[in-house]
Design a protein around this nucleic acid. Structure first.
Lengths: 189, 189
DNA sequence: GGTGACATGTAAGCAGTTACATGATTAT
DNA sequence: ATAATCATGTAACTGCTTACATGTCACC
């Protein structure tokens, strides 16, 4: 059985939570869901067209705006509801370039490896800062039904990033401890 | 600038660490790198062909085996070395279906959400067990140069998985705490 | 002699990225 | 004027998955 296309549901879901135009959806994903999702205009607009053809959404013929506005049909709502409540089947295998390089790292010096991990840690710290900013912007819109769930997704990112930062520190320690390559076989207990 | 194709380097790297045939490479990835990489035969064989055409690898014309054996050329080794030591530029945005559903979870009951998180936790626990098995198989080949790096990639997965398990527990607590939807506005400090 | 694992490969199709094109509005 | 931003869209391309095709070898 072929996998379902997630882009469909991302768009249906955003439509249900107030995003009306393609441009706005892309913007919302880039700012609020960017820690676990991304999308391109090359996906958004064709998908809106498809969803309209399938009758899951309709173009809002409201007052002449510069944006194309859409709304969910009852079919669209049903489809979204069905998908949301369906269990997620399996963990995706997430390819990781850093780990791939690390796996082959005997082809480089330990210093280079350490440097790379340090750089990775810097990126992780940036990401933590970003989470902090997103959290504040969520907390400044209090009382929303969705806020609880948004904070949960954020917490996911924060915990994961924190754990990876700890991994960076531990790994560098390991590498620095065994830096003297030539003596490595001397006292392995 | 277009992104580099990682499959190239995965194959070059495996070739450098003793995998000689396409079939073996796929098998190694599925068993030893499966916590951060995957690949299909539909990638392996065409890529081997391409790499041979580019002169980065050559077909080993050794004793007639049932497998097609390859070896790295000096160009191939250089290319691998160049890539490995190059810094990884940025963190990939990893799409996460569970979080996407969670983000839209007000369209379902809290119990369904909790159930989904529980199921996710079960998968994470399975994964931890798998890590344990991989670790043992690595430790049973001691003295390899690469073992240090392999254990580092494993540790990455273990720490991350552990953190996500903690997130599952915390999230369920949060959701169970605020389960009585109708009273939610009464005493938010 | 048939079943299943090993081994290599091709082709169709899909999801996603990137680059490009177009027009409207706003700011300097 | 013109530059920048907003907004919608299309087309080419790439990477990857999936399904299929083919042949060998072992084993029962």
């Amino acid at each position: 059985m072929p996998k379902e296309n997630m882009t469909r549901y991302a768009i249906l879901g955003l439509l249900a939570s107030g995003c009306t135009s393609g441009y706005e959806m892309k913007h919302t994903i880039d700012t609020s869901l960017n820690h676990f999702w991304k999308i391109s205009f090359g996906q958004v607009y064709p998908m809106l067209k498809t969803l309209a053809q399938e009758g899951l959404i309709v173009e809002e013929t409201g007052d002449g705006d510069d944006r194309k506005m859409f709304v969910l049909t009852s079919d669209g709502e049903a489809e979204l509801g069905r998908w949301v409540q369906e269990p997620t089947t399996e963990l995706p295998v997430q390819r990781n370039e850093l780990l791939l390089k690390l796996y082959f790292a005997r082809h480089e010096s330990k210093d280079t490896t350490i440097q790379k991990i340090n750089q990775h840690a810097a990126l992780l710290r940036e990401r933590l800062d970003m989470y902090q900013m997103i959290e504040q912007s969520i907390r400044s819109y209090p009382g929303t039904d969705e806020a609880v769930y948004w904070l949960l997704t954020l917490d996911y990112g924060k915990r994961k990033t924190q754990a990876l930062l700890e991994w960076c520190a531990a790994s560098i320690q390991t590498l620095e401890g065994g830096k003297d390559d030539e003596t490595r076989d001397r006292n392995t207990k």
